[in-house]
Lab assay of single mutants.
Amino acid sequence: SLEELLKLARHALRHGEEIHVLDRVITDEHEIKRLIEELERLI
């Protein structure tokens, strides 16, 4: 769900981890922040 993805993204950002989204691995902090902003808009 989007909520789950948002939780994962926030966790990854906090802990400096990578996040796997739709067969992509996002490691860049700015990309993760952008993902979080997009998800928050959708929810």
Rank of each mutant, 00 (worst) to 15 (best):
L42N: 05
H15K: 09
D28H: 09
E18N: 10
H15R: 07
L6G: 00
I36M: 04
L13W: 03
K7Q: 12
L13C: 03
V25G: 03
L8F: 05
I36D: 00
R14K: 15
E18T: 14
L2R: 05
R10C: 05
H30L: 12
L35E: 01
A9H: 01
E29R: 14
G16T: 04
L13T: 03
A12D: 01
E37W: 12
A9R: 00
D23K: 02
A12E: 02
E37A: 14
K7F: 08
V21P: 01
D23L: 03
V21A: 09
I19A: 04
L2A: 05
H20S: 08
R14V: 15
E18H: 12
E31I: 07
L8E: 11
L6S: 01
K7I: 11
R24A: 07
I32P: 00
K33N: 07
E40W: 04
R41V: 08
L39M: 04
T27M: 08
I26L: 11
V21W: 14
H15W: 11
L39H: 00
L35F: 12
L22K: 15
H15C: 05
H30S: 12
L6P: 00
H20N: 09
R41T: 09
L5G: 00
L8T: 09
T27E: 07
L8V: 06
E31C: 04
I43Y: 05
E31Q: 10
R41Y: 10
L5T: 04
L42R: 12
E3P: 02
I26W: 11
T27V: 12
D28R: 07
L5Y: 06
K33H: 09
V25K: 07
L8S: 08
K33L: 14
L39N: 00
D28A: 11
H20P: 04
H20Y: 07
H30Y: 13
A9N: 00
L39P: 00
E17D: 08
E17H: 14
L42G: 04
D28N: 11
L39E: 00
T27A: 11
L5W: 09
L2V: 06
A9F: 09
E40A: 04
E31L: 08
R41I: 10
G16H: 13
R14W: 12
